[in-house]
């Protein structure tokens, strides 16, 4: 430790406390009393559940499915293969006309028929599971689960 810093610390806390121990970072810090997850961290948790809705994720594949905000859903899947990378990202925008599917390459179309129904089921399953497992809420009533 820099001698000037050590001297300053000694002046502040006295010489009966080990400055070495004082400055050591704990290996397993205890949780802060008001520690909370950020919206981004919650989103990550949601996405882990969302990705499982569509069945097992193949080895070497990363999948994300989550509700980004109150009118946007994201699907992302990519092969974790450095030699032959492939990825596919789809954005679903809910607007006054329905659900707009936005794909790479400026491809847009509104969901309809079976695809729309399947998306609706995916949203419901996501809501059901995320409400229970992430937010401990009864999805039917919104009340806190015991």
């Amino acid at each position: 430790m820099n001698s000037a810093l050590k001297k300053a610390l000694t002046m502040l806390i006295g010489d009966d406390v080990s400055t070495k121990n004082l400055l050591r970072m704990p290996k397993n810090p205890t949780p802060r009393p008001f520690q909370q997850m950020t919206e981004r961290e919650l989103l990550t948790l949601e996405s882990e559940i969302g990705a499982q809705i569509f069945g097992p994720i193949p080895v070497g594949v990363r999948r994300e499915f989550f509700c980004l905000d109150d009118h946007t859903w994201i699907w992302h899947e990519e092969k974790l293969d450095k030699k032959n990378p492939e990825s596919n990202t789809i954005r679903y925008e809910i607007n006054e006309h329905g659900v707009l599917k936005v794909q790479e390459g400026a491809r847009y179309n509104y969901l309809e028929g079976e695809e729309f129904n399947n998306f609706a089921v995916a949203v419901r399953m996501y809501y059901e599971q995320v409400a229970r497992r992430v937010y401990q809420r009864d999805p039917a009533t919104g009340t806190k689960l015991a």
């Binding site: 919206e39 509700c67 995320v130």
Partner: peptide
Amino acid sequence: SAIIFALR
């Protein structure tokens, strides 16, 4: 979607 957003 709104409910999920609000819960988060």
